[in-house]
């Protein structure tokens, strides 16, 4: 399917914006990306649409980021995998307000998403509703509660947790 057609199709379901990246990498291959935004309420139908259109899109990863005024999760899927030189990476961006950071899980569709959702949960403090296993994944158990390492606001790592000194015997070390 043509990239723009795919984008239109997804935009119709999500009601959001989107764009296509199509760049040349070498003589034969191109880098194809489709980015589409979706709402917290209908992003699951966008993903379901992908599952319908392509049997088993491969979940690549979930990016969790703090955009200042809101949080964002990017669900990235590889479609057309297994077809030489035809793979497209489809990324669905979902905004989450900071005062109510809840989002539904996709582990019913992709059981492997558990690991990415657990990571997103502890890194920026979103609350994934319906996630079967809500324990921490990467950061240790004795790390303070309510501190999320990748948050850029007051919930991020407080200054006293940063390591200030580096073992640099030269003067004027940037880390001091």
């Amino acid at each position: 399917m043509d990239l723009n057609q795919l984008l239109e199709e997804l935009k119709r379901v999500s009601g959001g914006e989107g764009f296509v990246q199509d760049q040349e990498m070498s003589k034969t291959s191109r880098r194809r990306r489709v980015w589409v935004t979706a709402d917290r309420r209908n992003f699951r139908s966008v993903i379901l649409k992908l599952v319908e259109m392509y049997t088993y899109p491969q979940l690549s990863f979930i990016v969790a980021q703090d955009l200042g005024d809101r949080l964002q999760l990017i669900y990235s899927f590889e479609v057309n995998s297994g077809k030489p030189l035809e793979a497209v990476e489809v990324s669905v961006k979902v905004d989450i307000p900071k005062d109510d950071p809840r989002i539904a899980t996709i582990t019913d569709m992709f059981p492997g998403a558990e690991v990415y959702e657990r990571e997103a949960q502890e890194m920026i403090g979103v609350d994934v509703v319906g996630l079967p296993d809500k324990r921490r994944l990467l950061i240790p158990e004795d790390f303070p509660e309510g501190v999320f390492p990748l948050r850029l606001d007051e919930k991020g790592i407080p200054p006293e947790l940063w390591k200030k000194k580096s073992p640099h015997p030269l003067e004027g070390d940037g880390n001091e």
Binding site: H168, L170, E171, D173
Partner: peptide, 19 residues
């Protein structure tokens, strides 16, 4: 790795290979 430091007075650099 910030091995190299600029010394503004001499306009030269100093470095510590440990990094």
């Amino acid at each position: 790795t910030q091995t190299i430091k600029f010394l503004p007075e001499e306009k030269k650099i100093a470095f510590w290979v440990g990094r």
